[in-house]
Design a binder for these strands. Structure first.
Lengths: 153, 153
DNA sequence: CTATTATAAGACAAAAGACTCTCTAAATAG
DNA sequence: CTATTTAGAGAGTCTTTTGTCTTATAATAG
């Protein structure tokens, strides 16, 4: 898999948050239930995003997490970089350290191009884009459920 | 990383074989030395490729492995599929099982496009392409060495 | 035949990724 | 103040990947 599971969970969670009113704090418990992700595991991932400044958290009753910025201003790549780090989009396909323009591997050129297209896709897609699409077409963020049941209380 | 380490090792090894006379059997020991890969680990990977019919092996003195087909007829994707399996190019970016046209995740469309460009790149590049390029431009297949020293006896 | 050189196979260990469990601290509703 | 509900932090487990080591088997040069 290109993205780590942590990263995928982070994407699913922020995507879910993007479907909700931005003012509102969503408990992690609700996120983990709805998205069928281990509560404690998801907590750690979201803590990373909070530390990174992408999420805001609030303790106590009616607490939870919410997006720092509107979903339209957060690109998928922001989440990916925060969780998997920038290496994923700079690494050499053959795993050679320091592979770049001045000391490339034979595959460097082709891979750099492919990598760019991955980055462009992640850069050009916002959480809101996907949340809207999911809502409109009733897609799914989990193995069985669809968007409707996801948004039900 | 998109590709597993096993897969990368397999690519480096077959790439190395593609630089040599196709008739000749290359000992795995030589491959592991030149490419700085654990001998036993590399052995297993190459056994997979042999079982897959991409390599031919020969026991005894002057034995080793060689490519079954000329390097120009083996695409990178052949190696990738043999080692990492086809999932890597069919999997959902959000890890949802059965994600496809009829039951997609919100990211499916964008990801399918990106995935295609990865596959096209792997499909369109042959071992010979890269071997030639490596030889002509004296690139590297290992952390420190260059192609020249790689091909020296 | 025998020594040598290779593949082949399997048990095992280390490391990383994925996940669980437990405990603490903060915040607020009542 | 107190009970509740949350975030936060750390230890520990399970699984997969990666890598090592040991032994067996095949082939051939001499």
């Amino acid at each position: 898999m290109l993205l780590s599971k942590s990263c995928v969970y982070g994407l699913r969670a922020t995507l879910y948050l993007a479907t909700k009113d931005r003012e509102e704090f969503t408990p992690i418990k609700q996120l983990s239930d709805k998205l069928e992700i281990s509560f404690h595991f998801l907590t750690k991932i979201l803590q990373q995003l909070t530390a990174d400044g992408m999420l805001e958290s609030f303790k106590g009753p009616n607490g939870g997490v919410r997006l720092m910025k509107p979903g339209g201003k957060i690109a998928l790549i922001d989440v990916v970089l925060a969780i998997d780090g920038p290496e994923i989009l700079t690494e050499c396909a053959l795993g050679l350290p320091g592979c770049g323009l001045k000391n490339p591997c034979p595959l460097h050129e082709q891979w750099a191009e492919t990598r760019d297209s991955i980055r462009d896709m992640l850069q050009g897609t916002s959480l809101r884009d996907l949340a809207e699409k999911g809502k409109n077409e009733n897609l799914r963020l989990t193995e069985d459920g669809d968007f409707e049941t996801l948004l039900m209380d």
